[in-house]
Design a protein around this nucleic acid. Structure first.
Lengths: 335, 335
DNA sequence: TGCGTGCGGTTAAACGATTAATATCTGCGC
DNA sequence: GCGCAGATATTAATCGTTTAACCGCACGCA
């Protein structure tokens, strides 16, 4: 049988000449211990280079001091950024971050959720498959993609509606009259909000067409056909990845961006400032999202009975070259 | 005190009318159990919807059925891809993947390594800071960035030397005589191998200059100055991110790629096929790297005493537009 | 009858922590 | 002298598993 490498609490106690309970009290500062004893214990701890086993602790107390982050995949460049933000926030809270990425397979997602449930105090979920019905046995918050079916859980997301509206406002301000709208997948709550916000702000007469497409580079054939409409003078894509796909298609069609067609994306992924022309986009507050997800989860864990909270974080418009008309200001910042 | 949600082994045993030991034997198939008893136990398990606690199991056996992946950050787009590959390989091995990203701060990296050590059976480490001296208390393999100081550990990496050589061979084949070399940071073992492989294959007379730079988009001023050399007719950058940085700089200088200057990158990150012109690059076998890291770690865990193994995986040249001369073939694949 | 010997099962001791309950000691008021 | 309070420290149970050690029992065999 494999033994744990390091010394145990018992060893420390022995070395310091006290009981294990006392060592535990020192460790957790949970009962008064005389200064002298405390010093002996601390001495022993550093002498033996003792580290307490999170395992045994979790088994006994039921608290893991770890949170899980479950996301659809790491390929979409928006997620690594979010994962990083969540990781840092969790770390600040003194919790380890266990990350699982499950693809868009509902079964895998359910399994991953179950596996996580056994190892963490709470889960931050970025839903991938809307078909996942498994529910974890620990507190959970939904990040980035709230949906009405999940209204019972806390949710944290950017204000997709406002983001869509901001995009519409910009294109209106720039005098566009023949606008194409690339929405995301119809079963994605965030995509729908962006669309609705956009449409709410736009004079519908100015909408040339709208088209549903997945959050990937390769656009469906229908989208390509619509982009070829010669009347088109602007496009709003509900994600940067799609926007870049559209940019390519437009280029292949020989249409100049931003000369003939303006283009607005969503997310402000790092790529957005890499392409030529740099992409005007709606920036999501990634760091704040991560931070908010963690604090919300923390409060949920502290009080499992409190009614669900739904946080909406502000987005911001980042104007770059893809909507630059003439000598209009050009923001050359990368990310 | 918080209790575990689900039923315990004891509940199952009670429900099936057997001892906990018997249930455990059924669960692990570790001792013969009569068909009849086994059926009763399985019935009870599914009836109570029992799931065994990895915690208690790990505490007792010392095996966590989890591996840790420690990487410098998620911002470099090469890492999410690798993380995904490792995750999938680990999952196939029946192990959970705990991911920690620690920045390039040696102290954070050491702490993360210690924290991981307590929760996993083994660690896959992509070194960030070369200054990290902490060593985990569990088996570890080094991924992607082997170094001589770490020779005592198993290592898995792509054949950076061969990759550098392949880049040199291509540029030579294309008749380039005034080549610029952007190496990565001098303390990165992988960067050095790429450089050495490149120089070994190249006729040194054809090297116009070389310059050290970090693996980021923004190149140091010295690099920008060197790129301005009018004689320059090709650049090899030891990472795609740097290559894209160089592409920008060249564009700002008004130099045409690939018309005047050919450009070769390294890694084949998704961005590589997004920029204009699409980037010729050396593709790392990401999936194979992840798979190999996991299997190597598995074998190391099985036999901690075996001498360290060092795996070198083949890279492949991906020719795209950035080295296309005239009507030369253009690979337009976007992975 | 007595004796190994598999087979199928149980008992009980760990693993490394936390924590309620309890014990010990000192000092103090009456 | 007695009892009680306060401050510290200890004992022992417990979390949910695994597993070494045992225990009957039926069987075959001398």
């Amino acid at each position: 049988m494999v033994r744990r490498a390091g010394p145990s609490l018992r060893d420390v106690a022995e070395c310091a000449g006290v009981s294990t309970a006392t060592v535990s009290f020192v460790l957790n500062d949970t009962k008064p211990v005389s200064a002298e004893t405390r010093a002996r214990v601390e001495q022993a701890i550093s002498e033996l280079n003792y580290r307490r086993s999170p395992l045994a602790r979790a088994l006994r107390t039921g608290r893991h001091h770890a949170v899980g982050l479950l996301l659809p995949d790491l390929a979409n460049p928006f997620f690594p950024a979010l994962a990083q933000a969540v990781t840092e926030a969790a770390w600040r809270w003194g919790h380890a971050l266990i990350l699982a990425s499950a693809g868009d397979d509902a079964k895998a997602e359910g399994e991953a959720m179950m596996a996580l449930s056994e190892r963490v105090d709470g889960i931050i979920w970025i839903p991938g498959s809307s078909k996942t019905t498994v529910r974890p046995t620990v507190p959970m918050v939904v990040l980035d993609r709230p949906s009405s079916q999940l209204a019972a859980f806390d949710s944290i997301s950017a204000d997709h509606h406002a983001g869509g509206a901001a995009a519409a406002a910009l294109l209106r301000k720039l005098g566009r009259r023949k606008i194409g709208l690339l929405t995301g997948p119809g079963d994605s709550a965030s995509a729908c909000s962006r669309r609705d916000g956009f449409l709410a702000e736009l004079n519908v007469d100015n909408l040339l067409w709208q088209c549903e497409a997945p959050f990937t580079l390769d656009l469906p054939k229908r989208a390509a056909k619509l982009l070829a409409d010669p009347a088109l003078d602007a496009v709003f894509a509900a994600s940067d990845v799609m926007a870049i796909g559209a940019l390519r298609t437009l280029r292949e069609l020989g249409r100049d961006v931003p000369g003939e067609v303006l283009l607005v994306g969503y997310d402000d992924i790092p790529w957005a400032s890499l392409v030529e022309p740099q992409l005007t986009t709606i920036r999501q507050p990634v760091t704040a999202l991560g931070e908010c997800a963690v604090t919300t989860l923390a409060s949920r864990i502290a009080d499992p009975e409190r009614p669900p909270a739904h946080h909406l974080l502000q987005v911001s418009l980042v104007e770059r070259a893809s909507t630059a008309i003439m000598g209009s200001t050009r923001d050359a910042s990368h990310r």
